[in-house]
Design a protein around this nucleic acid. Sequence first.
DNA 1: TTAGGTACTAACTAATTAGTTAGAATAACT
DNA 2: AGTTATTCTAACTAATTAGTTAGTACCTAA
Lengths: 110, 110
Amino acid sequence: MEKNLKKINTSDENCPVRKTMSLVSGKWTLLILFQINDRTIRYGELKKTIPGISEKMLIQQLNFLVKNEFVSKKAYPEIPPKVEYTLTNLGLKTLPIIEQLAKFGLENLK
Amino acid sequence: MEKNLKKINTSDENCPVRKTMSLVSGKWTLLILFQINDRTIRYGELKKTIPGISEKMLIQQLNFLVKNEFVSKKAYPEIPPKVEYTLTNLGLKTLPIIEQLAKFGLENLK
DNA sequence: TTAGGTACTAACTAATTAGTTAGAATAACT
DNA sequence: AGTTATTCTAACTAATTAGTTAGTACCTAA
């Protein structure tokens, strides 16, 4: 017999919303994931798709996302450098979150 | 004929994901919305459901959410004070976002 | 030999966000 | 008179996050 079947539990440090947000609440994180999406994209291309982001933030976030296995990175040993980014399986699973955020924005914010 | 039918646009300042995140990316914002959910809840009760939040943050976020019409507030002219919070229609529309965040956390984060 | 292209790195500063501590209001109850 | 209950304020500090500026590496092409 389950002891605790109520729908809403307290949001302590184990709360899945809290844990997820701790990974994706950065200003640029979800935008980067959204732009990579289901494609393979180079650093420079990615930068163009997110106007206003600085190189520091883009790389910092990409490193973070690679470290946390949302994104995979492939560097070609060429000069000038060529680096491609793709979403991992885990990264792809963030897309439904982003879709909901986009839907909310489109329908409710001017 | 539409000129721009590609699925992914650039994420500039009009990006709906960006606009939504600018409202809900705070550390406590979505937890508060999630805890209010479809019920009417008093300040003190709400506080208990989010362990670790300080009174300052709770009230600050509640004021923010009321100002932005995610939450409505009803104060009873009693002593000691009694104040009830509920989600507005707009606030209710954030629940699908939160569900996706929870789902992601439950399925992918330990 | 100089400039251009690509993906970074590092040091520093600024801005935003969150946390801490103390306390106010007021009626009822002891 | 003093304690309790509840919601909220204010002043201040700390921590986190983001922005700025300058520069590196290496090959190619002008």
